[in-house]
């Protein structure tokens, strides 16, 4: 539940419902006064900035500011995982959970494929330009040698 409170014009303390006095000046400006102390001092035309116990004086002399500043510094923004366009939150989590090796393999495979494709493209374009390809020099493959089969070693 939110309670509507006013601020005392002199001390700047909160005024809860049922407390305080509302003085309205000739010019129509309302002045809330929380206590008889505040009222008495206002009638005496005392300045809030010259009374040590008021918030105005404390603000002027920079009291209690360092605590609030240090508190602010500790506050940090936490990282939040969120779904990005085209990738849901689950997909992202799954990818992050995968082992680095698998990811590395996948990456290499992808690069290899890309290279192959590039090479193929190059060959095609090269062929179209009419570059004379070197005639294949067939190496004479020796026919089955008798000794080869007899050789001991790898058997398939």
């Amino acid at each position: 539940m939110v309670i509507n409170t006013e601020l005392c014009a002199l001390s700047e303390y909160r005024i809860y419902p049922g407390n305080g006095k509302l003085m309205i000046r000739r010019d129509g400006r309302p002045i809330w006064l929380g206590t008889s102390k505040a009222y008495g001092l206002t009638v005496q035309r005392k300045k809030a900035a010259k009374l040590v116990w008021t918030q105005a004086w404390r603000r002027l002399h920079k009291k209690g500011i360092s605590e609030t500043a240090s508190k602010k510094r500790t506050r940090r923004v936490g990282k939040v995982q969120r779904a990005v366009v085209g990738a849901s939150l689950e997909d992202i989590k799954k990818k992050a959970a995968q082992k680095s090796e698998i990811r590395k393999d996948a990456k290499e495979a992808a690069i290899k494929e890309l290279k192959d494709r590039k090479a193929a493209n190059k060959a095609k374009s090269g062929g179209a330009k009419g570059k004379v390809a070197k005639p294949h020099t067939f190496q004479k493959v020796p026919k089955h040698m008798g000794g080869a089969s007899k050789r001991a070693g790898t058997q398939r």
């Binding site: 419902p17 049922g18 407390n19 305080g20 006095k21 509302l22 003085m23 309205i24 000046r25 000739r26």
Partner: peptide, 15 residues
């Protein structure tokens, strides 16, 4: 003269 409201707070004017 201050007018006492039902909740206990008061209000008055300069004239």
């Amino acid at each position: 003269v201050p007018h006492k409201k039902k909740d206990g707070s008061q209000i008055w004017f300069g004239e």
